[in-house]
Nucleic acid binder design. Structure first.
Lengths: 195, 195
DNA sequence: GTCTATAGCGAGATAGAC
DNA sequence: GTCTATCTCGCTATAGAC
């Protein structure tokens, strides 16, 4: 049946993306061969080319999907009553979202240099939108007198770097729960912007 | 003359390291071939093997030298009169030192996964010493009542991530001088730790 | 939709001439 | 100290059988 065949093909497609995501994150795009990905999925290398025109497009699709997920999830956040609540919501959202997708986050940052120029620009454009959202939120808060910060744009860069950094050290089952980590980082974020 | 030959060899050695550093930072260790490095230096590929036993050792040596430089420079900082002054000194030092060596910084972080386990452990050990220095400084400040922070270890991770992040966006000749960037980041650091 | 087989290429590393 | 030449391997991508 057509439905069965499509379902099976979609499963293979998904498994290829999962394997590529994990392997690229662990060893790096350039260090991973199409053969390794195929072996991980349990198909032959040639089979991958039914699902992607080439290795570069596979990488780009993974990064692009991740950035769209991020912006969609950001847009889906409920409205906050005031700038301080909005910043707290952003802080906790950023930590949770990035923690849950550490492989994709790692790739979206580390493999930028392996993208062809046109693909690079498309990903960078999406990243700038995310940064601009936070910068706008900080600017609003400052205008409203809720925050005191020397430079909203730099503060946005600084806070995003700080929050994303959780991924480099946080391990499930460690000293602190993720909820506790959120609390601690929110405390530092709040103080840093003078809220 | 022996002196002339040695001097020439040392020059070649240096140029190989510089080329490798730049190329690894720009394209990634796995994506750069020994032939590319040789071509950049202006020698043949085989010549590189007079200076390094293999590509992996070349990478490790670059990362190791960078980490030793960092710890040496940290140790060479003058004593500060109090915890707040020590933290300000650290903040400005970190930004300046990392900014001046962006290629080495990038490699020391991004290429960890391309190190063989034993080499990885040696680099990680050096990195932990650097983090421990800041964590110790924060703990002292808190004990002395100069800082208010929920968790010195997490604060150290958070601040280092935030400060290193300057390298991802700062460009010479941009809107802000590096001195001004230091001021702005120090303002955020100071507030974040409640100093 | 997946397989086997392979074309075509470039990699890391080494040998030996100069 | 650097070169040319080469060994051996694994890569991306494609062709065609089933």
């Amino acid at each position: 049946m057509a439905r069965k065949k499509n379902a099976s093909a979609e499963t293979t497609r998904l498994r290829i993306r999962e394997a590529a995501l994990r392997l690229f994150a662990r060893h790096g795009y350039a260090a991973v061969s199409m053969r390794q990905i195929a072996s991980d999925v349990g198909v032959q290398a040639g089979t991958l080319y039914l699902y992607t025109p080439d290795k570069q497009t596979l990488l780009f699709d993974l990064m692009h999907a991740h950035m769209l997920d991020l912006l969609d999830a950001l847009a889906a956040l409920p409205d906050a009553p005031d700038p301080r609540a909005a910043l707290e919501q952003f802080t906790r959202f950023h930590i949770r979202f990035h923690r849950a997708r550490s492989d994709a986050v790692f790739i979206a940052y580390m493999e930028l240099r392996n993208l062809e120029p046109e693909n690079f620009e498309r990903i960078e454009d999406l990243r700038r939108r995310y940064e601009a959202h936070l910068a706008g939120l900080l600017t609003q808060g400052q205008t409203a007198g809720a925050f005191t910060l020397p430079d909203p744009k730099l503060a946005a860069f600084a806070l995003i770097a700080m929050l994303t950094g959780v991924n480099t050290w946080y391990r499930e089952g460690g000293r602190l729960s993720l909820a506790r980590v959120e609390d601690i980082y929110w405390d530092m974020v709040r103080k840093a912007v003078g809220a």
